[in-house]
Design a protein around this nucleic acid. Structure first.
Lengths: 249, 249
DNA sequence: CGGGAGGTTGAAATCACTCAATTAGAGTGG
DNA sequence: CCACTCTAATTGAGTGATTTCAACCTCCCG
């Protein structure tokens, strides 16, 4: 397997925007420092002022917040190719905690490098901006789920989203992906208790929609999963919308 | 009262970033077309490809999504000074519906005007980018609320947020603001039924935290309201954090 | 003063939570 | 290769927050 590199970020940006050869080259020249993070390790805290932008090259991570009573809400799952702390580039601080799920590889690219890239190739700034806008769209979709969808549809929706996002960076095996989350993790992302996640997953399995075993998620019946989730992938703004996707543009 | 103008947008951008005199001038020169929108009117639909950026100068609006079973989820409240459809600048389409609450005044600024402003004054692009990042932070905070806070704290949190945001653009009267929402609106924003909103508001009123009558919200006891809401205003990234705010930087 | 939207109330139903115990699995050391 | 251990998954029973349904009230506005 090739060493994960900046190419993954390029692939990610390319899946939603359109990169000119020049921009692709400029992006490819970005220099960063590799960073390893162990599994289940916090590597960013709300209030931190990172001086580098961190790209996830390999592994799995999430953003989360802790509430006073000890509750946890996961607000985003990061897959390879994602930029973990882009907000800090313009807001100085990040306002969420970051935690790895499995051992992960990051690439730390100094803010100055990014900013001078933007100066020389203003179009690349737009690509990064798009990323933050798409993240916001994903947040809105999660809000819709937590506010108005019940457990089954909410869980199904998350699975659809992750599968499409993984496809976009070439990390899906058809409709199967690596998913190293525990049921407690899923609960904290979906706004459900771990117990209820367990029962919900059994329903999804029983309905023949998914196969979910330790570390691997497979959509057995993609179309029916999308339907159960009320999933419309347009909010992800991918160029090529995955096969069997609900309504296309 | 002065005619609402682009100054409101400048005030908004200034409350979170730092505008140089030059930038302030350049922003002030932005030309736009005034648009009026009646109360309770949809003026933007998911899939639209607006060619202008719309700034809310006066009134109140929200972003929302409709679900198949007829449910509605409001994902954002827009107050004067807000940009309503900035995502379209880089994603081409917007992926949410927009609706006014009361009769509102918009300013439509062509995308080209914005983009050439960015070209001449790259720093202004960062200010707009900040806006989208702050919106994303607000979405995350709503997710935290819907996932892990119960009705009382969730409602209190929304009120705190709106008061601080209104303060930032100079539209709050101490801790009182105009809030023309119905309980059904609040329910669809909070992920609650209108009936439960009603009961929750009675609790908040009974506890002496707020006064909420048709059209006007007043925080009677700001500190206790923040406490009940577990409200930490840092996610709003305002320069001057409101009086009595929980933990400051 | 009539109409209508929005607010309020009560009762029953439901979805999801908590608590607590049990089972399954993966990794470790003997 | 088998105990041992720890974490995660599973199950059952009881509880609780919130929903739904349906009725009634209130206030604003024409």
């Amino acid at each position: 397997m090739a060493t994960p590199s900046i190419d993954l970020l390029i692939r990610r940006l390319d899946s939603t925007g359109s990169l000119s050869a020049v921009e692709r080259m400029a992006l490819g020249c970005l220099e960063g420092t590799p960073v390893s993070v162990n599994a289940r390790t916090d590597f960013g805290r709300a209030g931190d002022r990172p001086r580098c932008v961190h790209v996830l090259l390999e592994g799995f991570a999430y953003r989360y917040a802790l509430l006073p009573e000890g509750k946890r809400q996961i607000t985003f799952f990061h897959i390879p190719g994602d930029i973990l702390d882009l907000p800090a580039l313009f807001l100085t601080t990040i306002d969420y905690d970051l935690c790895s799920v499995v051992r992960s590889q990051l690439l730390a690219i100094p803010h100055e490098a990014i900013l001078s890239l933007f100066q020389e190739h203003p179009q690349t700034a737009h690509l990064f901006w798009r990323e933050t806008l798409i993240h916001a769209a994903i947040f809105r979709e999660w809000m819709i789920g937590m506010g108005r969808r019940q457990a089954l549809a909410r869980a199904a929706h998350l699975f659809c989203e992750l599968i499409v996002r993984m496809q976009a960076v070439g990390l899906a095996d058809d409709h199967a992906i690596a998913l190293p989350l525990t049921q407690a993790d899923l609960g904290d992302a979906l706004g459900l208790s771990a117990v209820h996640v367990n029962r919900t997953l059994q329903e999804l399995r029983g309905a023949g929609l998914i196969k979910l075993t330790r570390g691997r998620l497979e959509a057995i019946d993609w179309d029916r999963l999308c339907e159960a989730a009320d999933f419309d992938p347009r909010y992800l703004h991918e160029h090529q919308i995955g096969p069997g996707a609900a309504r296309s543009l």
